[in-house]
Deep mutational scan, measured.
Amino acid sequence: GGHPVTTQMVETVQNLAPNLHPEQIRYSLENTGSVEETVERYLRGDEFSFPP
């Protein structure tokens, strides 16, 4: 991942996926670069990993 992630982006995802840890959200956003894509992954039931 190398996309810039803002606190705003993390908070937006958190509102839609409250049971995800912020670190999981941030890591996913760094890989996708997209709030929409991260939320899609969540709704699909994809696994969210923590940063290594």
Rank of each mutant, 00 (worst) to 15 (best):
V5K: 03
F48Y: 02
E23N: 09
T38L: 05
S28N: 06
S28R: 00
Q24D: 00
N19M: 11
N15D: 09
E30S: 11
L43C: 08
R41C: 06
N15S: 15
V13G: 00
E36G: 08
E40V: 12
T7L: 15
T7F: 12
E40G: 10
P52G: 08
L43V: 09
L16T: 06
E11D: 11
T32I: 02
G2I: 14
F48W: 01
V39L: 14
F48A: 01
P52Q: 08
I25F: 00
E23M: 12
Q14A: 12
Y27F: 12
P22Y: 11
I25Q: 01
Q24V: 03
L20I: 03
R41T: 05
G1T: 12
Q8D: 11
S34L: 03
M9K: 03
Y27Q: 05
N31K: 13
N19S: 11
R41S: 10
V13C: 06
T32D: 03
Q24L: 05
Q14Y: 08
R41V: 04
S49L: 15
P4W: 15
V39A: 05
L20E: 02
N15C: 14
T7Q: 15
P18E: 05
P22G: 05
Q24I: 03
M9C: 08
S28C: 07
V39N: 03
Q24A: 05
S34D: 07
Y27D: 02
P22W: 12
T6K: 04
M9F: 02
Y42F: 10
P4R: 15
E11T: 11
L20G: 01
L16N: 06
F50L: 06
E36I: 11
R41M: 10
P4H: 14
V39E: 02
L29H: 02
Y42Q: 00
S34E: 03
G1H: 13
R41G: 06
E30W: 12
V39P: 01
E36D: 11
P52N: 08
T12Q: 15
F48E: 01
N31C: 14
P18R: 07
L16V: 11
Q14R: 13
G2L: 14
V39F: 09
Q8K: 12
T32M: 04
Q14C: 10
Y42S: 01
M9V: 02
P22K: 10
E37Q: 10
T38N: 00
D46A: 09
R41E: 03
R41Y: 06
E47G: 08
N31H: 13
Q24S: 03
M9A: 06
T7K: 14
P4M: 14
Q8E: 14
V13I: 08
Q24N: 01
L43T: 07
S34H: 03
L43F: 11
S28P: 01
F48R: 00
G1E: 11
G2R: 15
L20V: 02
P18S: 07
S34W: 02
L29E: 00
G33I: 02
S28W: 08
P18L: 08
N15L: 15
T32A: 04
E30M: 13
F50V: 04
R44G: 04
E47K: 12
F50D: 03
A17G: 02
R26W: 11
S49W: 10
E37L: 13
